[in-house]
Design a protein around this nucleic acid. Sequence first.
DNA 1: ACGTATTTTCCTGGTT
DNA 2: GAACCAGGAAAATACG
Length: 380
Amino acid sequence: MSTSSELSRILNTANVTMYSTEPQPNLQPLHISMVNRAPQLLDISFYGTTAGPWNHVNPQYWTKKQVLEWIEYHVEESKFDASLLNMAYCSMDGSTLCHMNREDFTMAFGTLGERLHQNLEMLKAKHGHHQVDDLTDPRDLTETYDLLNDFLLGLPQSPLLHDGQFGGLLDTVVVQPSPPQERRDSDSYNFLTAYKTEIDNGYESLPESLQSSTGSFLNPSSPESNGSDSDPEFLDMRYPVKTKSFEKQERGEQKKRGRGRPPKLSRGSDQFTDSKKSKHTPRGTHLWEFIRDILIHPEQNQGLMKWEDRRDGVFKFLKSEAVAQLWGQKKKNSSMTYEKLSRAMRYYYKRDILERVDGRRLVYKFGKNSSGWKLEELGM
DNA sequence: ACGTATTTTCCTGGTT
DNA sequence: GAACCAGGAAAATACG
């Protein structure tokens, strides 16, 4: 009990610190509650004494969470006194970590530094440590990875989690009908507000018409279709912060929109988005890269997509609408659908970023102008 | 300010 | 009939 719980406490604190660095006063309770909701992900007990998923990922691509898990693992293994850890050094991502030399490690982690350094070097070698510059911006990769992580963390606790069963988790997930444009200005966590397990909300009996053809992931209705009612109660009991953006929703009025992307809503209306935006999206966050990043994190994508032919770059959408929602979240566009996402995918054929795969639904193939997905490129 | 690249949105029509 | 697929058209947005 002692070491593990102490560690969990410390690392939990680190998590809270880590995710509340953004000036988002209204959102802080949300972040904290998220961490509290799924602490198992960071608990030693969750992984036992074996290495976590980070073990299978090139350290260069580790998220902050994975770095933390990695440190946690070594603290436990070496019976290092966790209270000596300087948490300031526990919130870097893999890319930053990989730029540290031996001295940096000793400075940052004291006597644990040597061990961490050695292990990291070993892992780098194991994963054929590439200069990521020849792939894409690692920040995008970790960003997508984080998105997937948040996707999981955002799921309310369910017995499945306690059983340590991640597989099939998404099968219990419900997407609420797509909200109207007003939500465009909401923060990046709005995706999470759209999810809830059946177990949690008793939504087992939603109309079958909403079922995706490929699984039990429920479709959000398209913006035009005015799908079945969302339940405002369930939306907000967990994320009260979101209430504002949702309460304005008036279903029922179905006005036709013009072609093209709708104009952005009032610039100054959302300080959070704006401040975030000012950094502006780094290059490389293209759709195909986003898709690729989901695919190369199979341990994290939880059945959203899968490789049909890993070597040839043939892949398939398993939860098409879920991926679209995730893409929408990334682009701060809550009305993204697979229909629209797939249109963008089809534009890639012309540019040889994707190749056509005839006759197979939801199946695509990376083309010669895509990169970063091949095993060799990933040092595997 | 303008042009380009990359979506996003909408739509019609075809296929599974 | 629902879910996809194909692409044209037009508009939005980021970026140089």
